[in-house]
Amino acid sequence: MKASLNEILRNPVKEKMARGEVVASMMVRLVRGVEIVRIAKTAGFDTFYIDMEHCSFSLEATGQICMAALEAGIPAFVRVPANTPEYISRVLDGGASGVIAPHVRSAEQARAVVRAARFAPQGDRSANGSLPHLHYRSFPTAEANLALNRATMVIVMMEAVEALERVEEIAAVEGVDMMLIGTNDLTAEWGVPGQYDDPRVAAAYERTIAACARHGKHVGVGGLGSRPDLVAQFVRMGARFVSTGTDLGFLLAACTAKASAVASLIPSTSGDN
């Protein structure tokens, strides 16, 4: 028996955050093959996102990974290199379950992202009759577009001081699901790159979480993989999505630990094997 449209388009990340639970995510910047999908799911992540802003992945490689994620039942998001329809609509058509828009600085920019990511009446994304999300099955356009709008996540990144100053109006934009704070870029704009204990960091999270709570949106923690204490603090404050780090960072950390362990071994001097 074939699954229904709503069963096909379930988004477990949306469902988990709606229950008030915390979503664990990772970034993909290194592994260009579908193996990363199984690795992420086996590791226990709820989702992952391909960081096209900071890697050289092609749209083809990105689409292949996203389609594999659909089959594995783990939503894959894509951080696009530019907040333009030709990127946003194409990564979504290619199999992404959501889009992450970097460097959003105003409500106007957030609305432009929503328009590119959602079908009418919420946006002006062009209809595509054959999508991997639908198992390439044919459904009535009106029904399919409505269901896709519900399932697709639109995430805007708060990583500029200008965005923080306009956080209330950005949080109020209809069609935005989550605001992901880019802590590294924020501290860089303040002239204190990587200084996460700067009081402005906690204040930025507090302000964003409060604004999102008023408008029914979620907040994500980004750039704090090295500071689990701060991640825990911001989750207690209300954040519900945690970006834990990159596939490259995880691989390098594990390799470094293994190499260091061997380097620390003391060979026997007795001549025994």
Results as ranks from 00 to 15, higher is better:
E21P: 10
S260M: 13
R214V: 05
R166N: 13
H215N: 14
V219M: 00
V154E: 02
D247L: 07
K2L: 09
Y196D: 12
L59A: 12
F45M: 15
A61M: 13
A18K: 15
P199H: 03
A142M: 13
S243N: 14
Y136N: 13
N6I: 13
S56A: 14
G225K: 10
Y87I: 01
V235H: 09
M179E: 00
A61R: 09
N11C: 05
A144Q: 11
N184Q: 06
G94R: 03
G73Q: 08
S56T: 14
L5V: 01
P267K: 09
M178I: 01
I266P: 13
N184I: 05
S138I: 14
G191C: 15
V80C: 00
L180S: 04
R137M: 14
C212R: 09
I36W: 00
G44C: 12
T208I: 04
E60V: 13
R105L: 06
R137P: 09
R207C: 11
V23K: 00
V114T: 00
V114R: 03
A160T: 15
A76T: 01
V242Y: 04
T256Q: 15
G238M: 10
R137S: 14
L70F: 04
R236F: 03
D198V: 07
R166Y: 10
S270E: 13
A76Q: 03
C255P: 11
V114H: 00
E174A: 01
G225V: 01
S25C: 14
R227I: 02
F234S: 04
S56I: 12
H215K: 09
S56E: 13
A203V: 09
R150P: 04
L230P: 01
E174D: 10
A18C: 10
G220C: 03
A204R: 05
S106W: 14
A263M: 04
V80I: 11
C255G: 15
M17Y: 02
A127N: 11
G222Y: 05
I209D: 06
M179A: 08
V80H: 02
E159K: 11
V28R: 08
A96F: 06
E15P: 00
A254W: 14
A257M: 12
I209L: 05
M178E: 06
K41S: 13
I65F: 01
H133A: 11
R29P: 07
A112E: 08
G44M: 06
S126V: 07
A263E: 12
G222V: 07
A96G: 03
K14V: 03
G175C: 02
P228F: 12
A204G: 06
T47A: 08
R227D: 11
D46R: 02
F48W: 01
M1P: 10
I8P: 05
A203N: 09
F57C: 00
P102Q: 10
L30T: 12
S89K: 10
A142R: 14
E165G: 11
L186H: 11
D124P: 02
R240N: 13
A151C: 09
T47C: 09
G222E: 06
Y196V: 10
G194I: 00
L186D: 00
D229I: 07
S58V: 07
Q109R: 01
T256W: 07
P12R: 03
S270I: 08
A163G: 11
T152K: 05
D272I: 12
N149H: 11
E15T: 06
R115L: 03
V231Y: 12
